[in-house]
């Protein structure tokens, strides 16, 4: 087992009487691409905000890149590239100002890297940020998170607002940095991108970690979302059995339409949630 880029022990964070996360523990190995899955309000952002020092947690211990998150916040932030779920910048800034500002605070000259990133993301650096769409603001955020070649990426819902081409380019960049050693931790509620790009993942629901495993094991539920028209009757169900059996069963019927696809994340969650309850 390698060293951990992220190590969280018994994290509890509440907002007054409102639940944030409860007794959450997880560890992300250096060099991993780690998915953090959960529906809206599950506690993904609270966990990330606690890691980055935006939220002050009540209990637990967070270690990032071998440093205690409370005691070495500035040094940690120097080595982290963070992309929030909603990217906002000072409205009076141009794109190039927002990017340069992030580099200036780090006292780094990131021009070569930022120019490469802007070119690949097709970002017009002379536009004012207040004129940008969410997708373009996310691109600025990607550049700000990557230009200083950090040791750890933390992305909160990184692909929301990006078109499919840019999503692909974004993950291509993530994989390139990962190949050079950058650990990537990304929260998402899009199962397919976690399945495609992450090696390990955790599932969080209602502030509690339900399961942590390799993505391969987590998605080994065999669950498929099946929609079909059998003998003139529309059916829509989650199938967890052997697909060959399903196909054999369907062969004896008049099937006019069939769609077999990945289940929605919520449906996968239900699977894990039911497991949790029966334990």
């Amino acid at each position: 087992m390698g060293k951990y880029a992220i190590e969280i022990k018994n994290l509890t964070k509440n907002y007054g009487k409102n639940r944030g996360v409860t007794n959450l523990s997880m560890a992300v190995e250096e060099g991993d691409v780690y998915g953090f899955l959960g529906p809206n309000g599950a506690g993904k952002s609270t966990t990330i905000r606690s890691m980055l020092g935006l939220a002050r947690y009540q209990e637990g211990e967070i270690t990032l890149l071998g440093m205690n998150a409370r005691e070495h916040q500035v040094e940690i932030l120097r080595q982290v590239g963070y992309m929030p779920s909603e990217a906002w910048f000072y409205p009076e800034m141009k794109v190039k100002d927002a990017i340069r500002y992030a580099a200036d605070v780090r006292k780094l000259d990131c021009r070569t890297e930022s120019e490469m990133l802007c070119e690949r993301l097709q970002l017009d650096v002379n536009k004012k940020v207040e004129e940008l769409s969410l997708g373009n603001r996310k691109k600025v955020s990607i550049v700000c998170a990557m230009q200083h070649k950090p040791a750890l990426f933390i992305f909160d819902e990184p692909t929301s607002g990006l078109d499919p081409l840019m999503q692909a380019e974004f993950f291509k960049l993530v994989m390139e940095y990962n190949a050079k050693g950058t650990t990537c931790f990304l929260s998402s509620h899009v199962l397919s991108e976690i399945k495609k790009y992450c090696r390990h993942a955790s599932i969080i629901r209602e502030g509690k970690l339900i399961r942590t495993d390799t993505v391969e094991n987590l998605t080994k539920t065999n669950a498929k979302h099946v929609r079909l028209v059998r003998d003139g009757i529309e059916e829509d169900f989650i199938y967890r059995g052997n697909l060959n059996e399903l196909l054999r069963d369907l062969a004896g019927h008049d099937v006019s339409d069939v769609v077999i696809e990945e289940p929605e994340l919520e449906e996968v969650f239900m699977h894990f949630y039911e497991e949790e309850i029966t334990k």
Partner: peptide, 14 residues
């Protein structure tokens, strides 16, 4: 209220 806190607070500034 301008939502820029996540831009500012994650830069290496205490």
């Amino acid at each position: 209220f301008g939502h820029t806190i996540e831009y500012l607070a994650v830069l290496p500034l205490s």
